[in-house]
Simulated assay, not measured.
Amino acid sequence: MTFNPLEERGIPLDRQLRNWRELNVTPIDPDHADPYTRCRIITMNGIESEAIMFNRHLARHCPDLEDRQQLAETRFIEAQQQRVVNWLLPGLASVLETTLAYEQVATDLTAWVARMEPDPYLKQAYQFGLLEDFDHLYRYANLFEMIEHRKAEKIVDQLTEVIPARPTRLHQRHPVDNVREPYDRNAAAPISKLHALTIMSAEQQTLNFYMNVGPMYMEPIARQLYQEISLIEEEHVTHYESLVDPGETWWEQLVNHEYNECYLYHSFMETETDPKVRAIWELHLNMELEHLRIAADMMRRHDGREPQEILAPRLPAPVRFEPNKSYIREVIATQIDYTTLGTGYVQEAHERFQRWQEQIHGDQEPPSERVIDENRAKSGREYRLETEGAHPMYSLRPH
């Protein structure tokens, strides 16, 4: 069955406003919910947050009053959607529980996108970031065991492994080496544009989350680990946002954002296991269809082009949260010793990389290494969750 959002009718914008009772959604049960339901919630919160942020920046550059008013009206509905989605997360969950879920999103969503991406250069970008977020999950899992005395499998279940990947201490790079070449908006497959927006949005919300919650901890090692990894998320946002062609017009980007929201809400509606959450995905999809129609009209008016020129004629196969254990192990085995040089990738720790490492780490072990050492000293071993086979250890080869 094909689904073309441009041909579907959504809920008229003047009927999308919800009252407080309707916004007061029941959160998921942290002890019984499908971990991938939580992943879908976190993903859509990131997508909605990016949609709001982009809309706001567009409005700041828009001279026409009526356009700004139209953007404001749509943006308020997007803001309600974001609150509903984010408020599905349970208040009972600790910040570290949510952090582990964020990294499960980063791991399994990025792995799925990398598997599905048709462009080799873009695929490499996702595989590179995947090994770093996967290692962050391992570091936070050890912090979780050390300060909350609980194990990460309570959060990720047996769906995602918790093992080392590219060591977090090696993720710090000179900023110029975090900028990638963008896709060509005139040649890229429509799915490639959606992938770039999706992963950029997910990483951006992770960056913001870690910046906000890190200082709230009293434990020095927790504060320091969030600080270290939040700076790496800064690198990741640069890495992913640079994949988007800067030649896209504001209105073209607006249409891409709205189409991507339709795509993801439709994907999650098709794959959601919780009926109450699925109903929210379906409702929001029907809202986004109208937002897309409005954006398409604005693109026609300002760019003089039809949205069909840049969009897929029907939605791609649904985005799926599913285990990616074998795929991640394969990427670890073949790419763990990669770093970046300019807009490319190398397997040697080049001079600029080594100099940056020396400057940022100084003569101290970074928090990502100390958290493993401290948990090993406290628990008698580091925390891992291996569900199949043995895991070899790797490190970057010296220059």
Rank of each mutant, 00 (worst) to 15 (best):
T2R: 06
L6V: 04
R9N: 13
R15A: 14
R18L: 15
N19D: 15
N19F: 13
E22H: 08
L23V: 06
I28K: 07
I28S: 08
D29A: 01
D34S: 12
C39V: 05
T43W: 06
I47P: 02
I52A: 10
F54M: 07
N55S: 15
R56L: 11
D67G: 00
L71A: 01
I77C: 10
E78L: 14
Q81R: 10
Q82M: 15
Q82Y: 12
W87I: 01
W87H: 15
P90K: 06
P90Q: 02
A93D: 10
A93G: 10
L96R: 10
E97N: 13
L100Q: 08
E103I: 00
Q104P: 05
V105C: 07
D108A: 09
D108V: 11
L109M: 12
W112Q: 06
P120A: 03
Q124M: 13
Q124F: 11
Q124D: 13
A125S: 14
L130T: 00
E132A: 10
E132F: 04
F134W: 05
L137E: 06
R139Y: 01
R139W: 02
M146F: 07
M146E: 04
D157Q: 13
E161M: 10
V162A: 05
I163K: 12
T168M: 14
H171M: 13
D177A: 08
N178T: 13
R185F: 13
A187I: 05
S192V: 10
S192A: 12
A196Q: 02
A202E: 03
F209D: 06
Y210G: 00
V213S: 07
G214L: 04
M218A: 14
P220M: 12
R223L: 08
Q224G: 09
Q224W: 09
H236N: 05
V237T: 10
D245T: 07
G247D: 14
W251Y: 12
L254D: 08
E261M: 14
Y263C: 06
S267V: 04
E270I: 00
E272T: 09
D274N: 13
D274F: 05
D274Y: 04
P275I: 11
I280Y: 02
E282K: 09
H284L: 14
L285W: 05
L289T: 01
H291M: 09
I294L: 12
I294P: 01
R305C: 07
R305F: 01
P307E: 05
Q308F: 02
E309I: 04
I310M: 14
L311Q: 02
P316A: 06
Y327I: 00
Y327M: 02
Q335A: 06
Q335V: 00
L341N: 12
G344Q: 12
Y345T: 12
E348L: 13
E351L: 07
R352V: 15
R352F: 08
Q357A: 11
Q359H: 07
I360W: 09
R370I: 05
V371A: 03
E374K: 04
E374L: 15
R376L: 02
G380E: 10
E382K: 03
Y383L: 12
H391P: 03
P398S: 08
